[in-house]
Design a protein around this nucleic acid. Structure first.
Lengths: 215, 215
DNA sequence: TCAGGTGTAGCATCATAATGTTATTGTGGT
DNA sequence: ACCACAATAACATTATGATGCTACACCTGA
């Protein structure tokens, strides 16, 4: 028991953060020296040789989101285990987290002892998941098999899809117009329709959606 | 509590089967009238109006396998929840089960009370999973998207990478500035540097590069 | 035949992005 | 001590994008 497991917390609600930190420090096998309200702050103190083994990460943070933060931390320090802590049931957030390398995903109503259990589970090589989350994950699996290679099909027409390809290629309206041999105003018109159908309002979002396979 | 939840069991080890059945029948909110050693036997008694809500299904059965059995039951009665019960850690069996519609996946060392908990979880819309199983599922997810494992490392600094994350999220300069709590002109400055380093000259190209893993 | 979607196009206007220039501060390396 | 560079910030200008409104030709299904 010479070495306690180092836990870090990123949570912008001070009461919750302090509560978890105090609880951690009451355990004789783990210790939480680093508790911050932002990913940026945590990254500021993380360096080789003094690395938390596990980070409890809130998703809904001011500044960088917990998901983006996790991606950053995972890319710099792949061995750090990250458990997402959130109030959201939102599927997209869940899959985004898991796909990006989260080691577990707990809903916030989870009790302190359950959080400790979750940490133990991660340290033993398991992955803690609230049952509701697990359900969504499984449903996701089932859907994948039921439709067998799903095609989101946002209802874009041929022409609109060609425009999207142009956007993904990083082209300007003018360049797309030239490539498709239509006027720039027609490109605008198509893009307006695409935005409506996809419920977005910038090139950036269209490109992101497309490259994520959501179109 | 007029209606007890109907549980069915398919398990070819008589001792285990009887044990689980007796335990179920000791609960005051659930009842197990149907316990068989094969999927075929269970299907023989399943009919509209007298349907178990949940089936505990062993994977390693004589005759039809538990996985095939589950597929069959799910195709005939999609509303029946099936929890797989097995000694196998084998990834292939796990994913096959989940993909085919299993509601949960428990390892056999699970204690009787834990099995009851698992059933409760399913009835509440969750999905029970042994932590080891959850870990495999998550690893599967990560493998799917994080296939690269390569960091091209375009020489972007931490701060610049954060900016890129913002761009990928479809944010405007203003939104990035707010999120990072810096001025919009600083965002511009960073983006100028990013463009130079990546040899691009639009948000669109940065987003595309990033999502293609070229950063 | 008529309504509705698609593809085309123009005009106008405001918002945002891209780029040039300059400057201060702090930090790490030589 | 000095240099390079990261991070911050301001100001200015031009380019591009986002969006509202209008219009017309073409098809297709009700």
């Amino acid at each position: 028991m010479a070495e306690k497991r180092q836990i870090a917390i990123v949570e912008d609600n001070v009461k919750i953060r302090d509560l978890i930190q105090q609880f951690m420090n009451m355990q004789d096998d783990m210790e939480c020296r680093n508790a911050f309200s932002s990913v940026e702050s945590l990254l500021g103190v993380m360096r080789e040789g003094d690395m938390p083994e596990i980070v409890l990460m809130d998703i809904d943070l001011e500044g960088m989101s917990g998901i983006d933060g996790m991606k950053l931390i995972k890319s710099k320090y792949p061995d750090v285990e990250i458990i997402m802590l959130t109030v959201y049931h939102d599927s997209h957030k869940i899959f985004n987290s898991l796909r990006s390398g989260a080691s577990g995903y707990l809903l916030k109503h989870t009790s302190l002892p359950e959080i400790k259990d979750a940490i133990d589970v991660v340290l033993q090589g398991g992955a803690p998941m609230s049952p509701q989350i697990a359900r969504k994950v499984i449903t996701h699996f089932s859907d994948g098999a039921a439709t067998d290679e799903e095609k989101p099909d946002s209802g874009l027409t041929m022409r609109e899809q060609e425009i999207v390809v142009g956007l993904v290629d990083g082209l300007s309206y003018k360049m797309i117009a030239d490539r498709m041999d239509i006027s720039i105003d027609t490109v605008r018109a198509h893009i307006r329709n695409i935005y409506k159908k996809l419920h977005v309002n910038s090139k950036a979002e269209v490109i992101a959606k497309s490259l994520r396979g959501e179109i």
